[in-house]
Structures are given as C-alpha cells and as structure tokens.
Design a protein around this nucleic acid. Sequence first.
RNA 1: GGGGCGGUAGCUCAAUUGGUUAGAGUACCGGACUGUCGAUCCGGUGGUUGCGGGUUCGAGUCCCGUCCGCCUCGCCA
Length: 615
Amino acid sequence: MIKRTHTCGQLRETHAGEPVSLTGWVNAYRLYGQNLVFIDLRDRYGVTQLVFDKESCPEALIEAAAKLRAEDVVGVRGTVRRRENPNPTIPTGLIEVVATEMEIFNKTDQLPILPDDSGAAGNIAGEEMRLKHRYIDLRRPRMQSILGVRHRVCQTARRYFDENGFLEIETPVLYKSTPEGAREFLVPCRTVPGQFYALPQSPQLFKQILMISGCDRYMQVCKCFRDEDPRADRQPEFTQIDLEMSFVRREDIMDMMEGFVRRLWKEVAGVDVPPIQRMGYREAMERFGIDRPDTRYGLEIKDISDIARKIEFKVFQEALAQHPEARAYFSKKGVVKAIRVPGGAEKLSRKITDGYSGFVATFGAGGVPTVKLNAQGAFETGIAKFLEPVKAELIAALGLQPGDTVLFAADSYAVATKSLGELRQKVARDMGLVPKPGCEGGPWNFLWVVDFPMFERNKETGKWVALHHPFTAPRDDQAEAFVRADLNSDDETIESIVSAGYDIVLNGQEIAGGSVRIHSRAVQAKVFELLGMTPEQAKEKFSFLLEALSYGAPPHAGIAFGLDRLIMNFVGTDNIRDVIAFPKTLIGQDLMTRAPSPVPDDQLKQVHIASIAKG
RNA sequence: GGGGCGGUAGCUCAAUUGGUUAGAGUACCGGACUGUCGAUCCGGUGGUUGCGGGUUCGAGUCCCGUCCGCCUCGCCA
C-alpha cells in the first residue's frame, strides 16, 4: 500500500524536485484527451494538484487517472514540481505532483452529495441529505475546520484547568431519576425489574459530592441529556465543560473562569478579552428586557409609565390599571415601556412596524403602539395624537431626535419586558445593527450577569421554583434573611432573596452558568421545603446529598460552559447541528444510523418493558 | 401541545388559472481536446412529484389524513 510522506496541505516550492507520496480523496478532475489529466487530491489538511502527462507517465497510468471521479480514494507516488501556471487561491498552488505510480484504494458509486463548500458543482446539499450521509458532509473543509476548533477548545480547557490544579473525573451516565427539572431520558434496569436509571441533565450533584470527597477542584467535558423539544441551538444530548471548586466564594470562581475565557479566546480566536463587566439581573431586565443582554448595540428599554399615566390613551390606561399596588418586579403590575429607534422613521417602514404586532403576539402582547418623530420634530403616524400632551416629556425621557421611531409596550411587567426584550433584538437585526460574528471581526461583548433572584412563583401552579437550581446558595449577605424567613408568610422576603449565581453572557447568548452551592444541610433542607418537598420526599430523592452535607462539606462553587454554543460562536453559525459530528434532528432522530429504532420483543422482555405505542 | 414554511431526476431547483409527452443546472455515462484549477464543447441515461385517500373529463398544482425536514411559542430546575 502506498503510504503518504506528506499531507495534501503541506507541499511548497521548497519541496520542488523531491519524491513524495500523497493519499486522499479526488476533489476534482480535469481531462485533456489521452495525454493530460489533472487531479485535485484532498485530505483533512488541504488540496494538492496531481498531474499525469505523456512525458512523465506510462500510458496505462494516464488511462487509469482519466477514469478517476469525485471522492475516489487513491494513493500516489510522484515528484514535486513548480507549476507553469500557479494557482494563488490555494496554499499548495505554487507546486504540483507529477505522478509516477498510483494505487486506487476505492472507487465511489454515484454520490448523493458532494463535500463541497463553494457550491462550485452548482448546488449545496440540503441539511437532510447532509445528515443522512454525514461521513461525506464531514469531509468538507468547513466541517473539518469546525471539528478542529472543537478539539482546540477542549484541549485548551484541559490544559488551563490542569495548570490550575483541577482533576478530570468522570461521573456516571446511568444515574438516578430526579424529575424536578427538564424531562429525562429513562433507561430500564434489567437486574432490578420495573426500575429505571435516568440519563443526567447535568452531573450537578456528583460534582458537589466530589467536593465533599475532598477532590478540591474538578473538571469534566461531559455529555448531558434533556428530553425537551429542541431548537436551532439545542440538542437532546449536548456537551458541557463542567467545573467545581472547593473553599471559594463567588469572586474566586469568577476570577478563575474569567482567566479561562481569556485563555480560550486568545488561543482559539487570537483575541484579547478585556476584563468582563458585571450587570445585576434587575438592571438587565430593566434595560434590555432579558437576563442575557446583547450589548453590541443600544436600543435600550425605558419605563415611561409615569408619563403614560397622564394621557388619555386607552391601551396605556388599561395596562396601567393592572395590579397598581403590586411590587414592580416579578409581578403582574401594569407598565408602559418604550424603545427609541434612532433613524427608525426612515428605515422601519409601516409594513415592518405593522409586522411587529404579530411578532410580540407570540409573547402575549396585544400590539406595538408606534410613533415617529419627523424631520420637523412633530409626532407622526400611529398614536401621535394621543402623545401630543406629553410630547416634551417623552422627548426628554427618551432623548428623542428628529427621524426617530418609538416602539411601545403596554402590558403586565412580565409581558411588556419580555416583548420589548425580544423586539429589541429583532429591531436590531432589521436595522442592520447586529455586527458579524466575532470571528469575522465583530465585537465579542462579554458580560457577567449576577444577583439573580433565588426563587420565583410558577405562573400556573403558584408554587415557588428555583430560578437556577435548588442547590444554589443565597448571596453571602442574603443568607441570614433566608434562614430567618417564614416560608409560609414571608413572600416579600423570599421574592427578594438574591442568589450567589452567575452567568457569562456573550453577544446575547448564555455561554456559561453557575453558582456558589449550599454547603449547609439546614439551608439545603429549607430550600427543599420551600420548593414544596416534604422531608420524606427530600430524603427519598436527595438523602445522599443531605447526608453528605452533614459529614464534612466544604464551601464550594461551580459553573458549566455550554461547549456547543462556544463552538457556534467561534465558527459563526447559529445551527447547533453544524458543530456536532453526529447530531440529531428536531424529533431526535439520527438520520444516518436511523436511531431510534424498534427492538425485538425478546429484548424488551429482558428489561421488563412492554410497549403501548400504536402500530 | 400550538403556529408557520417545505418535500418534484443521484443532488439543487423550476413547472402560468387545475390542461397535452413534468423541465433546467449539476452529478453520472459516452465522445472531442496537452496547462487546467467552478476547465470547455458535443451527445446520452435518469421521474411511483414523500405516502394514503378524495374532488374533477383531467391533479405536481385543490381538499382530508399521515410521515419526514426546518423555523418558532410553550417547555428547557
């Protein structure tokens, strides 16, 4: 078998005259009668032109070369030669390899898709075809490059955390069902009939136990599983870079993780990340309407309820009449909020702004009242006539300039905030304000979001739920208030308790999230109680944790980075399937292997399962 | 669970108001050509229009159901 001496991306002018051999796939072929054949040979490292011509090759070799087609797999021996006509568009374009011997490892059948990034062959395969024939799709230089970025991110994480004393430890994939959070994948147990494992939503409790075990610093690149409906940026199985540290408080772990972010961006993107700013949850919700603000552009949200109160506009008045006595946050109290869109009068056509009503309807809002300030400084269109009495106040409050458009939301705090938070991002896209992905020179805007509420009331059930997860500790200065609070009557206190959680937000995407953990058995038990668990239920589900907490648990804190989303940012895609070698479709199928699949009844019996699915 | 878009040649797409034999590019096959690099030129093979049912003289097109892909709301401690 011909073995390669070089890769297809390696040869340069300095190799001229050397005997070499290359192996790879036929990327393209160009024929000139019986006398001259060009083959572009591709491997993971690049493309090199092979030449078969009458002067250098026996006739049989040229004939064989002329029969090569796209994706045939071959090895070639030959000599490196400077090209008569260099091709400046590829790194190996100054040379070619004059073939003297060829071994065909495999001929290909008619291909369903071509591994072609450029669309040079006249088309780019659809995603369904790419997933079905993933092994061809992954040959594309673009996909190879993404796999490379993913590898570098993982390697950088392992190096950085190794240098800082972290141990890489594997945690179980067959785990105990703890059904509070996301829906779990279940695995029937053969040896204990009728009982099940669950696949972990995250290794959360194991890494805490590892801290209690004295491991001090833990890291793992680990698979997590959530059986929820997917999105463009979600998969049922995804990967986290998971971390936990002992004997630290919030500032310590945030410093350590900021160091990791700085190292990662330096090594993977060649970018120096400046110190990461912090923003409180309340400020983020107030200014951006979302807990992961995209700070690459303005369009901030302002509360103008006090101005809106003064005018006779039914939509505003009805909104403001909702729960007027309620607390401002996490409540149903009515508010009026607004976004100033600089230059929107020209760029946002009537058709576009009309479309915003339908957009916010999906978040429960009734519409988007709109007004323009024309070049002469007069309110125009939409609700102009209602706003006239408070024109000066509005201009001052929002900093309006001629040519601006103002978009309003009048609803409950929750709906108005969510609607404008989402609308803000849509307007930014419509106005062309969102820069290209960072890898193409756009800004990387990092932000720590901190001071989340510990708990909020579930909208439907009215039960308290943990905003992050039930193992999150209150912020140091809040712990006492939580310990003292009466769970049955002290709603105001419970709602106001701030956690020691922290998220890293990048360009409006959450890329990491974590918290200081509860290391007191009493506090942990109290959280379980608040979340509606009886002591018996808490014991049944989490006795191992409660026991561990009472046998010498150090203070500890952790975080997890969403690896897939990190890669999406580095390579500039909004499709998570692009950054996973073998991803699943929206209903969780693997189109290549056709998983999931039926299994024989025998196999079901062994695990004590009977299917009730029809058909 | 809800809403939206799509499924036609190996692949990417087109097909007028429901109208004759469903087209193009590319891939593939055959031929021409000694410096191309998205080679070019000539010719050819290739179709159960996702699947099932219905309306109609006539369905790729309209209706019902179903499967699959994508986007999205809910959901994702």
